[in-house]
Amino acid sequence: MKTQTANDLDRRRDAPVVELRNVEKAFETTRSFLDRLLDDPSPAKAVCDVSISVRAGETVGLVGESGCGKSTLAKLVTGQLTPESGTVLLDGDPVAGYATRTDDQLRRIGVVFQNVSESFDSRWSVRRAIAESFDRERRSATADHVAELLERVNLDPVVGERYPSELSGGQLQRVGIARALAHDPDLVVLDEPVSGLDVATQATILDLLAALQRQSGVGYLFISHDLDVVRYLADRLAVMYAGEVVERGPAATVFERPSHPYTDALVRAVPSDDPADPSPEPLPGAPPDPSNRPPGCPFHPRCSHADERCERHQPGFERVGDARSRCHYAAAIAEESGANEPETTDRPQHVPRSNP
């Protein structure tokens, strides 16, 4: 287990563990007869010109609707995919896909998968599943290391002799976290880590993640569609829409004073904890087809603020306070949203009620 001093953490915070610069990723789609006749491949742009970084000891939340490109971006970070353009850097060094990364580079990043039950071989015991993630130097002492890891995630070491089918969802998720930590990574990618768990179990997992981060200084890229869950842990926030990051900045700022209309709509769609409050109105419409993106701002067909400028011109990032927003009218959106919400910078001390 790594120990982390304040000086070590300050030094490592100066440079990102991982950084993506202007990365893009597209996939071939099923083409119609006419497309094939015209030789028009119409690739689906899953990630478009995205820049994002994560430092040791911090949590960067990545939020957006299903299909917006969050999981594709996670695979670019881990090396499961390589970008068509742009650069992925580990400690400032450009890297390509998983097969081309060195053992040390592979060790730097752990993963907790979205469908955790599907990420385990049902024929393997928990002990073997975790042991396979150790680096070569420690595979001769796997029993002790597995027991230590299980205790770190608040599980009895006897769980190591069980099989995935014998564990509850919360237990299996904690085993997934233990497996991700087996090689002492500096960054863990958490792809919907509490999706499908009840609220009490979500709170347990999130508290565990926070404690592990305090102990070891590990960084998290925390991916979720649930803003309440992300708000609990995130230091910084990136909001994705149609493959783009449309807003990024300190989490407290983005949540309390969103400057992009899509972020504002997501925040407004979170149900209130007060049952007397009216139910939020869902965002109308649907995201664009990735293979047929609209001109201009990709959000303009769903945006009540959109005008001719939005329909014709793709906005660049505008700085609003300490956040940046890809909107022509970011300052006005922030002023309007800030007037409707009391400002606070404190993290919630519990997991709020999840979205239905």
Rank of each mutant, 00 (worst) to 15 (best):
Ser117His: 13
Glu281Met: 09
Leu90Met: 08
Val158Phe: 10
Asp346Thr: 14
Leu283Lys: 05
Arg312Cys: 12
Leu62Gln: 09
Ala234Ser: 09
Gly196Pro: 01
Val254Tyr: 03
Ser66Lys: 05
Ile177Ala: 08
Ala306Trp: 07
Val23Glu: 00
Arg127Gly: 13
Phe255Val: 10
Asp273Cys: 00
Tyr329Phe: 14
Pro258Val: 01
Val218Trp: 04
Gln105Ala: 12
Ala26Pro: 06
Arg128Met: 15
Val351Tyr: 09
Ala74Met: 07
Ala74Ile: 10
Val77Ile: 12
Leu181Gly: 07
Pro258Asn: 02
Arg13Phe: 10
Val95Asn: 06
Val159Cys: 09
Leu34Asn: 01
Phe255Pro: 09
Asp104Trp: 06
Val50Ile: 06
Met1Arg: 11
Leu38Ile: 13
Leu76Asn: 05
Asp191Trp: 07
Phe134Gly: 05
Phe299Ser: 01
Arg214Gly: 04
Thr87His: 06
Asp198Ser: 12
Lys2Ser: 12
Pro290Ser: 11
Val153Pro: 05
Leu283His: 05
Val88Glu: 01
Pro83Met: 10
Ala143Lys: 15
Glu118Ser: 15
Asp135His: 12
Ala211Val: 03
Ser168Glu: 03
Lys75Asn: 14
Gly285Phe: 04
Asp156Lys: 03
Arg319Lys: 11
Cys68Phe: 00
Phe120Leu: 11
Ala141Val: 14
Ser165Glu: 09
Leu181Tyr: 10
Cys68Lys: 00
Pro290Ile: 03
Arg312Val: 11
Gln202Ile: 11
Arg324Lys: 07
Ala339Tyr: 03
Met240Ala: 06
Ala210Met: 01
Ser354Ala: 15
Val254Cys: 13
Ile109Ser: 00
Leu76Glu: 04
Phe255Asn: 04
Ser42Glu: 13
Glu84Leu: 12
Glu137Met: 11
Gly196Gln: 02
Asp191Thr: 10
